[in-house]
Nucleic acid binder design. Structure first.
Lengths: 137, 137
DNA sequence: GCCGACTTGACATTGATTCTCAACGGCATT
DNA sequence: AATGCCGTTGAGAATCAATGTCAAGTCGGC
């Protein structure tokens, strides 16, 4: 029997050299990085992956829930690997350090609110930006 | 005595024709509109205000807290007049209808969390996107 | 090894936002 | 009312992330 479930961490996509490279680089950091940054990181690691491919791959992974996406305060998308539970982030504005946060209360709250107003098909985004202790001084 | 407090709704900026036009148009809708849309609305109203000026004005007003800003799911900034209390939004993905939401609990929660992790200078963004009742069917 | 379907990458393009800088317009002063 | 200072404007160029294009390359099964 052939294994129908291909390489892990790739959302079922063909495990091409490029996608593997992206998947690998994602393990080397644990804060949020923009697609452009990731592209540069790859180049620095000797892996020449086209920018478009990086975008495509990140998007696919994000859709598949393999990655967290967030919009920085100036509107760029940033990615990182995430645990599979739904959660939010506390992000340092200057160094990018991230803390994963769970807020069951918030989840319930948003659901109640949207139901109350007749909204369905609801998604929400909650990000907290601040300056972390070490960047403070 | 000279009135030190200039025109209202302009964040203390000089009340130029352009700024007044922007301020006025903001009163004609109560959902979120992108800068570009606002620019077009102005043009449609016969007020020819430069795009750059629209951007500058909106930014200034937003900074002054006269406007709410939010990032749509695809990263564009959208604006609208807001009440002066801090709050969040429940936005319809398809028609843009907006409900203003207050969540003292969330405010407290974010503050506690960030303090817990040593983050200071904290701001947060919480938006809920969904499909409103009328767009549902 | 061969083939069709899926991927890639270099490049062009879009679209929002910001920058530049000379011309302009408030406004306090004379 | 005229003057000068300084903030403001606008047209276009410049940025920059993100997406589209399409021919060339690659994967995996047969």
């Amino acid at each position: 029997m052939t294994n129908t479930e291909p390489s892990p961490g790739l959302a079922g996509a063909r495990p091409t050299k490029q996608r593997l490279a992206v998947a690998r680089i994602l393990d080397t950091f644990d804060d949020f990085r923009s697609a452009q940054e990731i592209h540069t990181l790859l180049a620095g690691a000797g892996e020449n992956v086209g920018l478009a491919t990086v975008y495509r791959t990140l998007q696919r992974l994000a859709e598949a829930g393999e990655l967290d996406v967030l919009r920085t305060e100036d509107g760029e998308a940033a990615y990182r690997r995430c645990s599979d539970t739904h959660h939010h982030h506390l992000v340092c504005r200057s160094c990018g350090a991230t803390v994963e946060i769970e807020g069951p209360a918030v989840e319930r709250w948003t659901e109640t609110i949207s139901a109350e107003h007749g909204y369905s098909d609801v998604s929400h985004s909650l990000e907290i930006f601040g300056t972390c202790a070490s960047c403070k001084q």
